[in-house]
Write a protein that binds this DNA or RNA. Structure first.
Length: 710
DNA sequence: GCCTTTTATTTTTTT
DNA sequence: AATAAAAGGC
């Protein structure tokens, strides 16, 4: 027992062994947050205060859930061991969405869903919305499908159905109407989008007293990780599980709240303190991860946010190395710098898997990947194009969905004519009419019809017949062949990759059957929707880790490269239009910095390929917000020293008599500093377009504007 | 009705 | 740059 607690500091120990009352743990980055959470679970079980059956632990990502299970089972004696994925002792550990799904699968009847209801991911949801708008003849110029999706999800995440939605003018009232129609369509087709999983299970427990009583009695302890990321609905969801005797243990860090864009509400922390913790708040401020300079940088940066609960991390470690700042000539130059440094570090003994290459948005990984590939450095990309979101996989999944749940019109439309079987727009219109008139699904209309459409229905039926009794993997394999998907991609000259991915899907199914206790097709389809990014080939190898800053939360590395530190990229220009957008970007930067244990690189490029053209950027304001004494500027030079061999020397700027060139930093008496992004005319007529750090982008006549090189 | 070419649009972050 | 929607030819 004591061994569990031996290595904890006093605050951590206090948190782990808190008596039987709810508490809020404010845990800074690297303060042992996950450790405290998992140790508390192990401690509760070992001291016999609760059986695993009575524990509910909620996380946000699948990665975190897996990590938690692994750590808990390592702390408990083998007899109590918990297989990853399965939970023989009945502990509930998972993401909000995963647990909501579990609840709805168990109580589908009470929740008013078909047993085989399907889950729509964001892309599925958007196409369902487009389909709806088309059927209702909505002007998609005036009402953009994306806007409607945003409206629906925003309302659901706030716990509001269409009738309660914020509607104050004609426009939003129309949106609310469409929201209602969308929900009706989903209900008709027996599908649920992500926020629906939560809202539906919330309503289930809210309305069904015996059921609520059952779960409130069952779960004695509820533990929540990353509490700052909960949205209004998730918080209310949690509260339904909490009976009068339930102990809630919430761990969070307001400085790491980076999901406001999907409804996360940091006010939940204050609310929780008032409603449950009653001043029972423990701060974990000792950081065990990073050296001093890295922490100083992080603290200084985050202190510039106005909205904070307040907290300052400290470390017992020394200052460590300075933070290295590198200004690259171009994005390619930046990439080769990173590759060179990573290789050098690797030679010094740091494994590639202990280095992370972070960026603000997924699109930035391309150039980096290219440089790594050319240099022969193994790397692994997290997120980005997710496996289960590839079109060939989506097609295959659509066939599988039709087999188990034929009312899924979205799946039907996706593959009814893919591969092509002579069923065109005209035919489908007629089919949709028939279906609408009889209030049935496209599938039912197809079955009663004749010709090619009926042939398609028969094809699905045949596949279903032929696969009864087969294993999950065999079923999927057969469906891929019989549907004609495999042949289609075999005939396609660019189809080799896609064929391979389809093969990989069969492998994923095999793996899933081995690991999961429920190996039905429905369970696999839910898994595909909920864990779209978890399946990635190439694990286990010593590879450099590439991911967005968002994806890096909760992880740590010996060395971290933060790339693309330019205005409008990081902070992202979109954030300027959002309320408190800049503060969220700063928290994001804070998260990025605090991922590093020993060494941190911050890089930015003068020019970058963006939207298909070269753009000139100015250094991110976040660089200026860091204390100069912890920084080491690796270069301050005009010429690139790092350039890949394949890349041609930078184009010489056309000779002109002005002494200025595109890409150059300049200072203006009134507008401050900026960078020249375009040039026009010569001599006395010469004008330059300058992107200023604070004053926006302006055209200036060189003869009048008093510019000076900066 | 199918398939290729052109045109437009888009790009934040995730369950 | 890359992809989706639209248009045009077969």
């Amino acid at each position: 027992m004591s061994t569990l607690l031996d290595t904890l500091n006093p605050e951590q120990r206090a948190a782990v062994t808190l008596p039987h009352e709810s508490a809020l743990i404010l845990a800074g980055a690297g303060s042992g947050k996950t450790r405290v959470l998992t140790t508390r679970i192990a401690w509760l079980i070992q001291t016999g205060q609760v059986s695993p059956h009575g524990i509910l632990a909620v996380t946000f990502t699948n990665k975190a859930a897996k990590e938690m299970l692994t750590r808990i089972s390592a702390m408990l004696p083998p007899s109590t061991s918990l297989r990853a994925g399965a939970n023989p002792r009945g502990m509930w550990v998972g993401t909000f969405h995963g647990l909501a799904n579990r609840l709805l699968r168990t109580h589908w009847r009470e929740a008013g869903l078909p047993q085989s209801f399907q889950i729509l991911d964001s892309a599925d949801q958007l196409s369902a919305i487009k389909r709806l708008m088309k059927a209702l003849n909505v002007d998609t110029e005036k009402y953009e499908p994306k806007k409607l999706q945003w409206f629906i999800n925003g309302n659901k995440e706030a716990g509001r159905r269409a009738r309660d939605a914020d509607a104050y003018d004609d426009y939003s009232m129309r949106l609310a109407e469409l929201y209602e129609a969308y929900d009706a369509q989903c209900q008709r087709e027996g599908v649920a989008d992500f926020p629906e999983l939560l809202l539906r299970s919330y309503e289930l427990l809210y309305r069904n007293e015996p059921l609520r009583q059952h779960y409130q009695d069952r779960f004695k302890h509820i533990l929540i990780d990353e509490f700052q990321d909960t949205n209004t609905l998730q918080y209310r969801w949690l509260k339904l599980f909490a009976g009068p005797h339930t102990v809630l243990f919430a761990v969070g860090d307001d400085d790491q709240s980076i999901y406001a864009f999907r409804g996360a509400n940091t006010a939940n922390m204050a609310e929780f303190e008032r409603e449950f913790a009653h001043g029972n708040v423990i701060k974990l401020e000792q950081n065990y991860r990073s050296h001093g300079n890295i922490l100083t940088a992080a603290n200084t940066l985050i202190s510039q946010n106005a909205h904070r609960l307040g907290k300052n991390l400290w470390t017992a470690e020394g200052e460590g190395e300075p933070i290295r700042v590198f200004e690259a000539y171009s994005d390619q130059d930046e990439a080769s710098f990173v590759v060179d440094e990573a290789k050098a570090l690797n030679r010094e003994g740091v494994s590639f898997s202990d280095m992370a290459l972070l960026y603000r948005s997924n699109a930035q990984s391309r150039v980096l990947e290219h440089a790594l590939f050319s240099a022969g450095v193994a790397y692994r990309v997290y997120g980005g194009l997710r496996f289960f979101e590839r079109q060939e996989i989506k097609h295959a999944l659509a066939y599988l969905r039709l087999m188990t749940h034929p009312e899924d019109d979205g799946a039907f439309l996706r593959v009814v004519n893919f591969p092509a079987r002579g069923i065109g727009a005209r035919t489908l219109e007629q089919l949709a009419d028939t279906a609408a008139r009889s209030g049935s699904s496209l599938w039912q209309a197809a079955c009663t019809g004749s010709g090619k459409v009926a042939g398609f229905a028969k094809l699905i039926e045949d596949i279903k017949q032929a696969t009864t009794g087969l294993t999950l993997a065999e079923t999927i394999d057969h469906a891929i062949e019989a549907s004609g998907l495999a042949d289609y991609y075999r005939a396609d000259k660019d189809g080799a990759d896609r064929l391979e991915n389809l093969n990989e899907l069969v492998n994923a199914a095999t793996l899933f059957s081995e690991e999961s206790e429920d190996n039905t097709l429905d369970a696999f389809l839910a898994h595909a929707a909920l864990e779209a990014g978890e399946h990635q080939a190439g694990a286990g190898q010593d590879a450099l880790q590439l991911m967005t800053v968002h994806a890096a939360k909760g992880l740590e590395f010996h060395t971290v490269f933060i790339t693309g530190l330019e205005e409008s990229l990081f902070p992202h220009e979109q954030s300027a239009h959002e309320e408190n957008g800049l503060e969220e970007e700063r928290r994001l930067m804070y998260v990025a910095i605090t991922r590093a244990r020993r060494r941190l690189y911050l890089t930015h490029a003068q020019s970058r390929m963006l939207h298909g053209q070269v753009r000139y950027g100015i250094p991110s304001r976040f660089l200026a917000e860091l204390p100069e004494q912890v920084l080491l500027h690796l270069n301050r030079r005009a010429e690139p020293s790092y350039r890949s061999v394949s890349e041609p020397a930078p184009r010489a700027t056309p000779a002109n008599d002005t002494g200025y060139r595109v890409g150059q930093s300049v200072a203006h008496a009134k507008f401050g500093t900026g960078i020249i992004i375009d040039f026009e005319g010569r001599g006395a007529d010469a004008r330059v377009q300058v992107k200023f750090r604070d004053a926006g982008t302006k055209w200036l006549a060189l003869a009048y504007a008093k510019l000076s090189p900066a």
